[in-house]
Design a protein around this nucleic acid. Structure first.
Lengths: 140, 140
DNA sequence: CCAAACTGATTTGCATACAAACAATAATGT
DNA sequence: ACATTATTGTTTGTATGCAAATCAGTTTGG
């Protein structure tokens, strides 16, 4: 008698693994860069890379929906790391700009951000890291 | 003149990739099993696997902290999928039990849960899936 | 035995995350 | 021109997720 039905082991499910690895990564990030969160840093990095963006476009560039990006931008603005200005061309738009303080934070923390990625991947060899990034990219 | 400093490309960072893959997975789950969330299903699956557990232990078994698991259990209890009873052995403890309704939901949805994992991994070959799960397990 | 340390649960506060509904504005087709 | 449609941003509601503080109950060391 063969038991053919696979057992649903939570720990083997992709969703559960993603959640746990994310938890570990967030903890490392929070230790190393307590001033901002991962999402806030993502916004700053994109603004540094692409220059001023409308709030909606910024959301698309950082994989956040409109409601989420609004909250993130609000909190960054409260910290003085970004500024928002109305767009005279399109009165619906809100342009989000990196402030000098935001740019300074980015400049002083990029190296640490790389270290955070390294620490997260520390249990893997170099080759394994490359494979993992490739596979996750296919799933993103 | 070699530019030696690596550029911080958000899309290559493990944290950003994890967030995007998780988003895709959550969307698939929500499509297929709208009655409960991924975390709620994780709680149900663990209770099915291990039987009644104290709320704190349940949290450890599902990688949720005490505050988070309380919310999840409360919402599951409101839906009648789990029940909580005080533990006479240790008056601090709250025992969480799967109700018949919860067990029925699990039974009727496990197969779909497998399909969800499959759909999430659909862009990968069988060999790639195995590798990915192995690598993520090392990072969890 | 009993103070100190520990554990279980709750609460508050903050930060994502997404769905749904909405208002204002812009673009489009006829 | 103008009604339809689309886009941008805001708001509300629900659900994680974690830190920190607190309270109640249990265990342990001297």
């Amino acid at each position: 008698m063969m038991e053919n039905r696979r057992k649903y082991v939570l720990d083997d499910q992709i969703g559960y693994l993603l959640r746990m690895v994310t938890q570990r990564h967030l903890a490392i990030f929070n230790d190393e860069i307590p001033e901002v969160t991962t999402t806030q840093f993502a916004v700053i990095a994109r603004l540094e890379e692409l220059g001023p963006l409308s709030q909606n476009l910024l959301g698309r560039e950082t994989a956040m929906d409109a409601a989420t990006v609004k909250g993130v931008v609000d909190r960054l603005a409260r910290q003085g790391l970004v500024a928002t200005t109305p767009d005279p061309e399109d009165r619906r738009r809100l342009t989000v700009t990196l402030t000098p303080e935001g740019a300074a934070l980015y400049g002083s923390r990029v190296a640490t951000a790389f270290e955070i990625s390294d620490k997260t991947l520390a249990p893997l060899s170099g080759a394994e890291r490359t494979v993992l990034i490739e596979l996750l990219t296919k799933l993103a």
